[in-house]
Amino acid sequence: MKILLIEDELKLAEFIKKALTEAGFVVDHQADGTSGLACAMINAYDLVILDLMLPSQNGFEVLKNLRNFNNQVPVTIISALSNTEHVVTGLDLGANDYLKKPFEMSELLARVRVWQRQKLAAGNSRLTLLDLEIDVHKRTVKRAGKNIELSNREFLLLELLATQADQVLSKSYLLEKIWNMTFDPGSNVIEVHLYQLRKKLNEGFAHQHIQTVVNRGYTLKST
């Protein structure tokens, strides 16, 4: 699951990002409202965690603009503005959840897992392609019954390829979806992660699941 954190308190943001990353989520961070809104509009996220007291435009404005542009990404507000009026305003503007600061990290993680379960309930949490088994909920990967340990980015890359099996995904598409990067011919981030992913998937096996399509991109074959 991919999360956007919009929080201007950098120490708190680092703490939240570290906890979410260790829990297996991929997290991007923006420190002001304008940058956060732009990031949310041009990238696909499963959840936005939004502070209210932000520079450039506050969290209420970010939320209102998101919904005005018909962006329905789930939003969890985290804020020290904790009176009933602020909570009601946030929910009325389209927030899905409101967590008052200060909060225990365990509670935030529990609320994030609620959205993860809802996302998985809307689709199939298990993907099977030949001898490859991917459990999106548990974030586990097996090949012919053998457990394969992947990093967060490697797992997200495999999940993206698997959910669009047999389709050719371009390098620019993968960069945009996973790293929020515009296409840079000089970047080798995709090649590096694919090399590591292939190495882990193929150790002890002859068949290559992930194939390179010259001048087009990459595909994961289902047959």
Score class of each variant (00 low, 15 high):
Asp32Pro: 07
Gly24Ala: 04
Met105Ile: 15
Arg117Gln: 13
Ile16Ser: 10
Val87Ser: 01
Ala121Val: 11
Leu120Pro: 03
Phe60Ala: 01
Val87Glu: 15
Thr140Asn: 08
Ile42Glu: 15
Ala122Met: 14
Glu85Tyr: 14
Asp131Glu: 12
Ala80Pro: 02
Gly36His: 06
Glu61Pro: 09
Met53Gly: 05
Gln118Glu: 15
Pro74Tyr: 03
Ala95Ile: 13
Lys119Asn: 14
Leu120Met: 14
Asp97Gly: 07
Ala31Leu: 02
Asp97Arg: 08
Lys119Phe: 12
Lys17Thr: 05
Asn96Arg: 11
Phe69Gly: 10
Thr128Asn: 14
Val75Asn: 10
Gln72Ile: 03
Glu22Ile: 02
Pro55Cys: 04
Gln57Cys: 11
Val114Gly: 07
Thr84Leu: 15
Phe69Ser: 13
Ala95Pro: 07
Gly59Tyr: 04
Asp135Asn: 14
Gly36Met: 04
Ile77Arg: 04
Asn43Asp: 12
Ser79Thr: 13
Leu66Tyr: 05
Asn65Arg: 12
Ile6Val: 15
Trp115Gln: 12
Ala19Gln: 15
Glu104Phe: 00
Leu129Gln: 06
Asn124Thr: 11
Gly94Cys: 09
Lys119Glu: 10
Leu37Gln: 02
Leu99Gly: 06
Thr34Phe: 02
Glu9Gly: 09
Ser106Ala: 14
Ser56Arg: 11
Asn96Pro: 07
Ala44Gly: 09
Asp135Gly: 07
Val75Asp: 09
His137Cys: 07
Ala121Gln: 14
Cys39Glu: 13
Asp46Asn: 15
Pro74Val: 03
Leu99Gln: 09
Ser82Met: 00
Ile3Cys: 05
Asp92Lys: 14
Asp51Cys: 00
Leu54Thr: 05
Leu120Lys: 04
Phe69Lys: 15
Gln72Cys: 01
Ser35Thr: 08
Ile6Ser: 06
Val136Met: 03
Ala121Cys: 04
